[in-house]
C-alpha cells in the first residue's frame, strides 16, 4: 500500500500531540518511580493565600535539615545525606556549583530556573476541591505537620510525589482531619464571640478629609499577661467575668490545658504570624466621627476600649471603639450636646 506524502504530513500532524504528551507522561512516570526517595517538611508559601484555585501553595522547609539560604538567583547546589535515625530524612549541606563533582552525597540537587530545581521557592500541589477548606484550616493549626515525598534523579532535579499530613498520606489523613475541622467549626466554644478589651498606645495613624485612623495595642497587662512584643505567643483562653459577661478573664491556654471551659480561644497561628501581640491594630472612621476619634485620642484621661470578635478560626476582629464606656457615636453626640450653648 502506498501512502501519499500529503497523507503522511496529515498523520504526523495528528500524531504530534500524542507523541509529545505521551513522552511527557512516561518521563514523569519514570521520575516518580525512580531516583532516591526523600521525605521533607513543607510550610505555607503565604498563609493568607494558601489555597490558590485548586493548588496548595507551599515552600519546602530546607532549613529544617541544614543551613540553607538563597532563592531564585542562587547557583549553589544542595548535598543530601541520609540521616542515621531515619534514612528517608536528609541532612543537607549547601555547596558551590563547582564542588558538585567532588562532593560525596546520597543525592544532589542543582539550582536553576525551573520548578524541578531546589531554589524555586513557590511550589504548588494540586488538591481536590473538596479538601480545600479542611487543608486551609489544618495548615493554620501549628500542631499539624505537612510533609512531601521527593524523588531525586541523577539529573539533580526533584519531583514531588505524595503529600502527607501528620505522617499519613493525604487521602488517608483527610477523613480524620475533616472530622476535626467540622467539630472545630460547630463546637460551642468556637462560635464567634464578642469581648470588650482595654486598649493602650492609641496613636493617630492616618488623617485625611475623608478618613481618619488610629492604631492601638490591646492592654494585655490589664488582664495579667506579660508578653514581649514580636515574640511568638501561646493560645489564649477567654471566659466571661462574673460582673460583666462582655469583659473577659483571660488565661494562657497551655497545650495540656482542658479547653472545654473556655468560651473563646484566641489562637496564635501562621495567619497572625504566630502571635496575637505582634502588630498594632487599626480602627478607621470616616468624616466627623473620624475627626472626633483623632481629637479624643490626644486626651490622656480618656479611657479606650474595643469590642473584639474572636471567630471560629481563633482570630481577632475589631468591631467597635468605646471611649469612657460609650460608643464613639454616643460619645460624639454627648460631646456636642455638652458644648452646645
Amino acid at each position: 500500500m502506498i501512502i501519499s506524502k500529503n497523507k503522511i504530513a496529515y498523520l504526523l500532524a495528528l500524531a504530534l500531540p500524542f507523541i509529545v504528551l505521551g513522552y511527557i507522561t512516561l518521563s514523569n512516570h519514570h521520575k516518580h518511580n525512580s531516583g532516591e526517595l526523600w521525605h521533607v517538611e513543607i510550610a505555607g508559601y503565604d498563609p493568607r493565600d494558601l489555597i490558590h484555585g485548586r493548588f496548595l501553595r507551599y515552600r519546602i522547609s530546607w532549613n529544617e535539615y541544614g543551613n540553607v539560604s538563597g532563592g531564585k538567583a542562587s547557583t549553589d547546589a544542595l548535598c543530601l545525606m541520609r540521616s542515621a535515625a531515619d534514612p528517608r530524612i536528609p541532612t543537607i549541606t549547601q555547596i558551590k556549583a563547582d564542588q558538585t563533582r567532588t562532593a560525596r552525597c546520597d543525592s544532589l540537587l542543582n539550582a536553576g530556573k525551573a520548578k524541578d530545581h531546589w531554589n524555586i521557592p513557590l511550589r504548588q500541589y494540586y488538591i481536590p476541591e473538596e479538601f480545600a477548606n479542611t487543608l486551609d484550616w489544618a495548615f493554620g493549626q501549628t500542631k499539624n505537620k505537612f510533609t512531601v515525598d521527593l524523588r531525586i534523579g541523577g539529573a539533580g532535579t526533584l519531583s514531588v510525589t505524595d503529600l502527607y499530613i501528620n505522617g499519613e498520606i493525604m487521602h488517608k489523613a483527610m477523613p480524620a482531619l475533616k472530622a476535626a475541622y467540622n467539630s472545630a467549626r460547630s463546637g460551642e466554644r468556637n462560635k464567634p464571640q464578642t469581648w470588650r478589651l482595654k486598649i493602650k498606645d492609641i496613636t493617630p495613624y492616618y488623617i485625611s478629609d475623608v478618613q481618619n485612623c488610629i492604631t492601638y495595642n490591646i492592654d494585655w497587662a490589664h488582664y495579667g499577661l506579660e508578653v514581649a512584643a514580636y515574640q511568638n505567643t501561646p493560645d489564649l483562653c477567654l471566659i466571661p467575668s462574673p460582673n460583666d459577661a462582655r469583659t473577659p478573664i483571660i488565661s494562657i491556654a497551655a497545650p495540656d490545658t482542658n479547653l472545654q471551659g473556655c468560651a473563646s480561644i484566641a489562637e496564635s497561628t501562621p495567619w497572625n504570624n504566630n502571635s496575637w501581640n505582634r502588630q498594632p491594630k487599626t480602627i478607621c472612621q470616616s468624616a466627623q466621627l473620624g475627626k472626633f476619634m483623632i481629637a479624643q485620642s490626644k486626651i490622656n484621661a480618656a479611657q479606650f476600649e474595643v469590642e473584639n470578635t474572636i471567630n471560629n478560626m481563633g482570630n481577632f476582629y475589631s468591631t467597635e471603639l468605646f471611649i469612657n464606656g460609650q460608643t464613639l457615636k454616643d460619645a460624639m453626640k454627648n460631646d456636642a450636646a455638652h458644648k452646645a450653648p
Binding site: 512516570h29 511550589r123 494540586y126
Partner: peptide, 20 residues
C-alpha cells in the same frame, strides 16, 4: 481535539504535580 489536548496537558500537570 484541540481543547482536549489542553485539558490533557492540565491533567498531566495535576497527576505529576508539575507546578506548571
Amino acid at each position: 481535539l484541540a481543547g482536549l489536548n489542553l485539558t490533557l496537558i492540565a491533567l498531566i500537570g495535576q497527576v505529576f504535580q508539575l507546578s506548571g
